[in-house]
Nucleic acid binder design. Structure first.
Length: 203
DNA sequence: ATCAAGATTACCT
DNA sequence: GGTAATCTTGATA
């Protein structure tokens, strides 16, 4: 169980920066959801950047809609959307008001609330020791494990039950860079960032 | 009103 | 490695 008072909560100014900078800097930070007596915590190990100004894959590329309006907030808000008729994905909004950029949280290394995460994901106990690495190794899995859904979109990460704790930046040689996963537009942008070798990565 | 696509996952061979 | 599942959203009429 990690002590949430031990590290500072990331402030607004962390998020109001270019999306690629925030994406890389989020690696190693700790995402928290405090839900009553349950504390969910996970170390961010895989992210992707989306920027509606230049990126056809971003939800905001064609302008504001009811679904994506949170992404046009200033940095530091939580954007959760539903996709494929089954899964929620969660993002951290970045940049200045009206910019339309965000970082998708693709995978976490679970730290606290692990029993609750297992319950949320599988509704049973782990089958074997390896299954722990399937707990939060994908954007839909992260939301299922933490219990994120529509109700959480628009939350202020600087002033709510969902927030991110500061931790030291990863060393540059520990950060992998690749194309983004699961998109069909702007496929050549190398906007996926991850901690090399972490066993909780997606796919 | 209708329709195609989707920032995925689980399960199959 | 391939694909079915499932339903919301945004575009077009």
């Amino acid at each position: 169980m990690i002590d949430t008072t031990k590290y500072p909560v990331l402030p607004r100014k962390f998020y109001i920066r270019p999306v690629l900078t925030v994406a890389k800097d989020l690696l190693g930070k700790v995402l928290i959801r405090q839900n009553g007596k349950t504390l969910f915590a996970g170390r961010i190990i895989e992210v992707e950047a989306y920027d509606g100004n230049v990126d056809e894959a971003a939800h905001t590329f064609k302008g504001k809609t009811k679904r994506n309006e949170v992404m046009f907030n200033e940095g530091g808000y939580f954007y959760v959307y539903f996709t494929y008729g089954a899964h929620f994905c969660c993002n951290v909004v970045t940049g200045k008001q009206n910019h339309g950029s965000a970082v998708l949280i693709r995978a976490l290394e679970p730290l606290s609330g692990i029993d609750e995460m297992i319950k949320n994901r599988f509704g049973r106990k782990l089958k074997n020791e390896k299954e722990i690495f399937n707990l939060t190794s994908g954007p839909g899995k992260v939301c299922k494990a933490f219990g994120f859904n529509r109700e959480h979109t628009g939350l202020d990460l600087t002033n709510s039950q969902v927030f991110i704790l500061d931790r030291p930046k990863l060393k540059k040689d520990r950060i992998g860079i690749s194309k983004r996963i699961g998109i069909t537009k702007s496929i050549n942008l190398q906007w996926r960032f991850f901690e090399i070798g972490n066993p909780y990565l997606s796919r």
